[in-house]
Simulated scan of single mutants.
Amino acid sequence: MTSGSTGGRPPETSGAPAAPEPAAIAGERRHLTNLAYRLLGSLADAEDVVQETYARWYAMTPQEQAAIQVPAAWLTKVAGRICLDVLGSARVRRERYVGEWVPEPLPDGTEWVSGRLGGAAVDPADSVTLDESLTMAFLVVLEAMTPAERVAFVLHDVFRYSFAEIGEIVGRSEEACRRLASSARRRVRQEHAPGVPVARQAEVVREFKQAWEAKDIGALVGLLDPRALAVADGGGVVSAVLKPIEGGERIARYAVGLTELAPGLELLEHVVNGRPGLVLRREGVTVAVMAFELAGDRITRLWAVRNPEKLRSWTSEPA
């Protein structure tokens, strides 16, 4: 095949650039969904963002599409801007949300660890691994950020975009984006507990499950930090405590009381957002998904998602 070969395709009849191949555009869906989920903490919202991004792409003429030099960058820019809008409106929606709002939990799956190869050079001290950026603890910290902070931080520290690229998305200068990411990074360092090896996390979660099944309040208290915090999200759709439960002993007693109120509750160990967690089922139906944060050998945070709208990904999950 000569250097001028078109590989079997008909030769171009004009000097106009060709529109990108549909497969190449469709191939960005996974990356866009991963990005939008980390920005929004909701798979449903992330899917809506990706759908809207593709709708805007296909609304253009082939000539307009062909004029875009890097379609993947265009798609990311559009998705990022839509996420900014969604984050702004989400603050208003969550003021009306019944009870506590917890990010939507994701089951185990490599499709959720998808990043950008290459990208900006990032100091290792200013970077977050893709799988760490999926954890419930990390996503909860992101919730405390402003929309612009969240976008700048996630795009730069997680997905390795340059501040120049981020500036085009958030409509600010490179230096302003750098300050946003720096501010967000400080929040993460202040609020995010040091990592505990996953194997040890699994052991503690298993011990917690066994103590819960045995209704052993003493063992549960021993696994919980005295200042532990438990947060439940029922979304006003199903019953759940409306305020966080504070204190290891209170959490232990509440957990044991819950099993007495819901006989037949089955506790299953499961990977939740890339970390050891629990799935609660009753009569074969997933009724809650629990994520944990640990410091040393003790549980410091528990998040229980009961809102069925956030459990769609778990309805057909095997035990």
Rank of each mutant, 00 (worst) to 15 (best):
G296N: 08
G248I: 01
V49D: 07
R81H: 12
W303H: 05
Q69K: 13
G167A: 07
R150F: 03
A230W: 05
R227N: 15
G234S: 04
K77Q: 13
P10S: 09
P103D: 09
T110A: 15
E266N: 00
A232W: 02
E143W: 05
L155C: 12
V78Q: 13
Y254T: 10
S89T: 15
D85E: 13
G7R: 12
W314D: 01
P17W: 08
L224Y: 01
F153C: 07
S133W: 11
P124V: 09
V151S: 00
G274P: 08
A73N: 14
E149Q: 15
W57Y: 13
G119V: 10
K209F: 03
G80W: 10
G257T: 12
R200L: 15
P71W: 10
T135Q: 13
G195Q: 06
S239V: 07
Q190Y: 11
A73V: 13
T33P: 00
P263F: 09
E207V: 00
V151K: 04
R186N: 05
F159W: 01
A36S: 15
P147D: 07
L75H: 02
E64A: 13
L180S: 02
A152K: 07
V154S: 02
V70W: 12
P10K: 10
V205L: 01
V78L: 12
L155P: 01
P244I: 01
G109T: 09
A230E: 08
A26L: 11
R250V: 06
A46I: 11
L280F: 05
A304F: 00
V221M: 02
T135S: 15
H156Y: 05
R250P: 00
M60C: 05
L265D: 02
D123E: 14
A148Q: 07
E168T: 11
D108H: 13
D297S: 06
V86Q: 08
V271N: 03
G218E: 15
G171W: 10
A193T: 08
T135L: 09
L142T: 10
P276Q: 07
P10E: 10
R56G: 10
E174Y: 08
S42P: 06
A18T: 14
S316N: 12
R250Y: 02
T315V: 14
L180A: 05
R185Y: 11
M136C: 09
A214E: 11
D233E: 04
W57M: 09
T129H: 11
Q201P: 04
V70S: 12
E203Y: 01
L35D: 00
Y58K: 02
A295I: 06
G99I: 02
A16K: 10
R93N: 14
A19Q: 10
T6I: 04
I299Y: 04
E100R: 09
H270N: 03
L223E: 00
W314A: 03
P276R: 04
G8C: 07
R186E: 14
A137M: 11
A152S: 14
V158P: 06
E95A: 14
V128W: 12
R206F: 07
L75K: 08
A121M: 12
A199P: 00
A18Y: 05
V86C: 06
V305E: 01
V238R: 04
L117K: 09
S114Q: 11
